[in-house]
Write a protein that binds this DNA or RNA. Structure first.
Lengths: 351, 351
DNA sequence: CTGTTAGCGCATTCAT
DNA sequence: ATGAATGCGCTAACAG
């Protein structure tokens, strides 16, 4: 009973370094020296080794190398949800940087469940030299404990005071502040804020920005909401009911959901109500009206996490923290409140 | 010079199975037996081993296990672009299924460059037991050659006639046909098609669907376009210039770009022109008007790829091919052409 | 039921 | 400059 001649049928066993050595008429050690370049090898054997490697299609077994070197040349990335383009972008940033350094990327999706973050990180840490943890939802206490068990743990969008976990994070506080500033300049005095998950570190940071920006000339009304577009869709009515002239969403996703609801309701944006997002996902400039938001380069976030990962390996000293300041991008979803139409000069912005 | 007491400062060396054995007062083999459950172990030693494992926080070294077993319990996934939520979703599907089977996922991003696909797959194949290749752009010839070098290669959205590469793919042909049918039912007779990348397998499949659907009562005008939203934005004017009453986009992304352009132009959808997408990305139901498209469960695609991956390991016989038929979802971006308004009964659909 | 031995594939000693 | 020997951490095959 013969096997198919093409495709996956007959598969020759993988060549080992011994096969190559035999084929080239040298010792395994010489093959290794040629491949790693660790010690000089004279031209003759070198050529024969290279030829044998090519002929056999030999590639060293990473597991064996890892076992010997005690290092894997791999980095783990734990994300709450790969369906969320935000995390997919961060992952891409890490992966690209890692590939550049000849590192592999292992990925785990926790399905937004804080309970599985720990196990996922622990598991990946056995396969990789370290782990990048994106927006971990676990408690501060768990995180600290995890950092003790995982070599080279780097956080994205989660800062931990008192511990030395390296982290790169968006300055949500500053982002929220710039949105508030923008809305106040337009003349808004009462803004509804569509809250994200209460336990999220980024939400708490936003709250700090809100507290700093609130004052006699800017009232913030908090609306429980969530982080998805359907959350935004659901919370839109409550936001409208507050009689606020502007709605500030936790994220672009939430804003887009709210926008869809406003559209269903026949509420015009920005004529009747202004709307802002956060993150500047690609679709925010495609919807109508184009969304005013705050922009952050997610791939860059991932790239910086990689850099931290590399640095951390070097010393293992106190965890450096990189803050990335997002930038306000004013588009068409914000305008002066209806009762002030014409009382302010038109702003010349990216419309 | 003391190290920091918290966080990443002092790190004890990883415990090995020998440490555990010593700690429990047994031999390494017994520890292994307790952990793998390969052979029975009496209660006393078992308890001591478990306690020692917990105390030392021991976890077996996967590299060593892999070396011994000749298998890695990992699967590689190669995608053209992680920024594209389509691929991120497929990746999530694979990852979730893999995690369920206690497999790790390695990911590589080729940056849409066909030239790097081969290397990425080859590289991952050394670290994993096999590779899932998403929408490979490489030539048929390269793909066949790659399949011979990579154990357990599975393709997503790329069928190869003549070879036995297992694959799961969306039935683009049927999807396009159902859109054509829908538009013809509405009364459209002239449709502009915004073409995807000419070399893409999925585009060629769409063309087959188009050829089958075209006829005396349905003319298809081809417009070179691309696969991104900016491509759609750019090609929108040309589509309008054809005087077609409906525009059929290669994908939802392209459609969203075109929609944004129509909005800028003041062209009303669907009153002046109907518009359709393909894929049903989450934002298609949030834009205004909500996009008529064809839906496919991308995570399911990934899950099925995983299943194929598992099956392939079992026999290694001829590659099974799974076709996933997408479903038309009619929303608000399609209607009867303007010159036929009122001449057809309103369709009762998801508006 | 348990301990001892050997070897997975490789890089790195140490000899030559 | 090269070859032979050693061991990374683990599990499977033997012995007891």
């Amino acid at each position: 009973m013969g096997r198919a001649q093409t495709g996956t049928g007959a598969r020759p066993p993988r060549a080992t370094i011994i096969d190559v050595a035999r084929e080239a008429g040298v010792s395994p050690a010489t093959v290794s020296r040629v491949l790693t370049g660790s010690k000089p090898v004279s031209a003759g054997p070198e050529q024969r080794v290279r030829a044998a490697v090519a002929r056999l299609g030999y590639r060293p077994n990473p597991a064996a190398q890892g076992l010997l070197r005690g290092t894997t040349s791999a980095v783990g990335v734990v994300v709450p949800d790969l369906s969320n383009p935000y995390f997919a972008e961060v992952l891409k940033g890490v992966t690209n940087a890692a590939q550049h350094a000849d590192f592999r990327t292992l990925v785990a999706d926790t399905g937004e469940k804080a309970a599985t973050e720990r196990d996922a990180a622990l598991e990946l840490s056995r396969w990789a030299d370290g782990v990048v943890l994106c927006s971990p939802r676990m408690s501060q206490w768990e995180l600290t404990e995890l950092a003790a068990a995982v070599p080279r743990l780097v956080c994205v969008n989660r800062l931990s005071r008192g511990t030395s976990i390296p982290a790169v994070a968006v300055d949500f506080e500053a982002g929220v502040a710039s949105i508030c500033h923008h809305l106040r300049e337009l003349g808004h005095r009462r803004v509804a804020y569509l809250r994200g998950p209460a336990r999220a570190w980024s939400e708490r940071a936003r709250q700090r920005g809100l507290r700093a920006a609130a004052g006699p000339d800017l009232e913030i009304v908090q609306i429980p909401c969530g982080s998805s577009s359907v959350d935004g869709h659901r919370a839109a009515d409550a936001a409208l009911a507050t009689r606020a002239t502007a709605v500030m969403a936790f994220s672009d996703y939430v804003a887009l959901g709210a926008l869809a609801r406003f559209d269903e309701l026949g509420v015009s944006v920005p004529d009747e109500v202004s709307l802002t997002g956060f993150d500047d996902i690609s679709l925010s400039r495609l919807v109508s009206p184009r969304l005013t938001t705050v922009t952050v380069n997610k791939q860059d976030l991932g790239r910086r996490a990689w850099e931290l990962f590399v640095e951390t390996g070097a010393d293992g000293e106190d965890g450096p923290v990189v803050m990335v300041t997002p930038e306000l991008v004013v588009r068409a979803s914000t305008a002066a409140p209806a009762d002030m139409a014409g009382s302010l000069p038109k702003t010349a912005v990216d419309r």
